[in-house]
Design a protein around this nucleic acid. Structure first.
Lengths: 352, 352
DNA sequence: TAGCGTATTGCATAGCTATGCATTGCCCTT
DNA sequence: AAGGGCAATGCATAGCTATGCAATACGCTA
């Protein structure tokens, strides 16, 4: 009556009738309970098969009291839509989906920008066990919102380093930055630049900057920061920072860009200025997004293990670890043409 | 008793008690029913607020008989995991999420490869209204499976052109291929090559190939097909097809690659052979993935409107159009450095 | 004042499953 | 043969909401 197109769902009662048992027996047989005899189980399975029966997850979850679902929110830039999502976020999303599938969990995905009313109360509404929040850290409104959600005892796991004392997972920024420094020094660089920022809203970048400069100093090479304009980390900003650097007349022979998107802009600016990569300047990025392989020359970069990242994030929700857990995903150095010109590429893993 | 950490959910009965009304009044007030008086509605809203009440979607959906959710399955290559997903699929996923959000629908995402047991029965289990299937068409097993699902009266919408008479949405392949042909001819090309394939499992490619060759012929320019090796459309395959072309001694001055990933391989092979793009050979891709902007030179490509694509796919499920609907997403030509060297880039829209 | 229409609200139930507890039937022991 | 123990199954209910229908209250007309 509500809706004509519903073809009258087959229920466990129908299966029970057909198999000549009670509904509770059907439920137990199908869920693999060990108290059911083989003969009965076969009967039930047969009847279910014949009737095309499937458990109604809505009812099962209502009864069980849990959802078997994780909600993943990708925070977008306030203005931009789906088109504006960093490829890294998508890659990470892939890792999350894979990890969830491994554990038999479903993943609910939503892209969210500025609309406060869109920020879902998935957990409160019984749609998910918890939320994983990834995406740009530049959208302050969104992060503040989810921080509040997380503090209200909702299970929330973040990618990156938000403000506050919440569960979060990130790349091993320090190990990665050290690998970058070591590699550039090994390649003979004497004057290093790190393109990035050092603000509280982009703590991941700050970690990379600090570790890079420290390690370079340790190795006896000077390194200084070229700060990008605030608000996201896109190619545009890498380009502008590098142009400023060139105009400033600073001298350098190696650059570490704290993310690949920035590195693309650095590359653009250097090439526009007729500087050769890697002959005049060697360049290393961070994130290992697929596109990094496509530039000319291909970009040397630090690649986090995204499968592991997905697993840690899912774990943080599924296992509901009480102590605020902060975990680092191992990274590796992918050496490509932007930092050496032998045409021979290789990999260096971080420890752990 | 089942689980300790559940903090005793606030129900609509609690709100009712607090507001001094019945549970049904709470339900109606919260769902915006017009029969409720303003005064009562305010009372209820206030009580709900104070108690931190949220509707339990599991129960609501069980009662309503629908889910408000669309399941999106991204088909992966049998071997590869999340890391192997074409960036285009992710971009499309973004469009789907945006379109679903517009209509107040949730999106359940799963990456699926070979494991038959993983192919979810989301619809049968009452988890979703229908399924959107995207991803590689090279995974025959998966496509066959979902085709069967779709034929069994399940609402399934596909991206691309699967076998059988099912609902599907794709780029306007013919318009895009024509734009490519026209552009290359305008740029002065006299001998054209299209890198792609013409098999039944990659019907989208076949459409592009045919339309490109036909339009070129119409414009008085010869065009022939360089077939890639079967099984997916990755960079590798574009490279190999181009190498074969070069070894064969064929002469050409313009190439249309039926997808960007292939174009990247074409570019690689051409550059390895010391051919200049666009001076010696002009190159156009298809799909408009973000990475296409990063090559050197940047890749001219045909970009489908992904927001529109998402909307059409979601529409196919949400509106449950009875007639098997096949729809084309408009495309536009993004002119970049790989097809002309003025350093000036522009856009041409397809009609409609 | 009685009667009636309308605006609000409450009552009762369906939607489907999982599971605690009671029950049944059977075999084995003494 | 009687009693006890165990394996297998059934009964009854909770989980929370949305909604058809009944009931109430109120205002207005005659």
């Amino acid at each position: 009556m509500d809706n004509v197109r519903k073809p009258a769902r087959v229920t466990s009662f129908d299966v029970a009738e057909r198999a000549g048992v009670s509904q509770s027996t059907v439920s137990r047989a199908l869920s693999g309970s060990s108290v059911i005899s083989e003969a009965t189980r076969d009967k039930v399975l047969g009847a279910a098969q014949e009737l095309g029966y499937f458990v109604d997850e809505r009812a099962a979850r209502l009864r069980r009291g849990h959802t078997g679902t994780i909600s993943t929110v990708v925070i977008c830039k306030p203005g931009g839509g789906a088109r504006d999502v960093n490829p890294f976020s998508y890659a990470l999303l892939g890792g999350i989906c894979a990890a969830a599938a491994e554990r038999g969990l479903e993943v609910l995905v939503s892209l969210q920008a500025e609309e406060e009313r869109l920020f879902g109360h998935y957990v409160e509404r019984g749609q998910a066990e918890g939320m994983i929040v990834i995406g740009t850290t530049a959208n302050r409104t969104a992060w503040d919102y989810f921080r509040k959600v997380g503090e209200n005892t909702q299970p929330v796991a973040y990618w990156g380093s938000p403000l506050g004392d919440l569960d979060w997972v990130s790349s091993d920024n320090e190990a990665g930055a050290r690998l970058a420094a070591e590699h550039l020094v090994e390649q003979g660089c004497k004057e290093l630049i790190v393109v990035g920022s050092h603000t509280s809203t982009q703590r991941q970048f700050a970690e990379r900057v600090d570790a890079f400069i420290a390690r370079a100093k340790q190795l006896g090479v000077a390194a200084s920061l070229a700060t990008i304009e605030p608000g996201g980390a896109r190619r545009e900003q890498g380009r502008m920072a590098t142009e400023a650097l060139l105009e400033g007349g600073e001298s350098f022979d190696g650059i570490f860009a704290v993310c690949d998107a920035l590195a693309f802009g650095v590359m653009e600016a250097l090439q526009t200025a007729d500087l050769s990569i890697p002959d005049d300047v060697k360049l290393v990025g961070f994130d290992g997004i697929p596109a990094s392989e496509l530039t000319t020359p291909p970009l040397t970069t630090i690649e986090p293990d995204l499968d592991q990242a997905g697993r840690l994030l899912v774990e943080a929700i599924a296992d509901g670890s009480e102590e605020s857990s902060t975990r680092r995903v191992p990274v590796r150095l992918l050496v490509r043409g932007s930092s050496e010109r032998t045409g021979f590429s290789f990999t260096v893993n971080s420890i752990g």
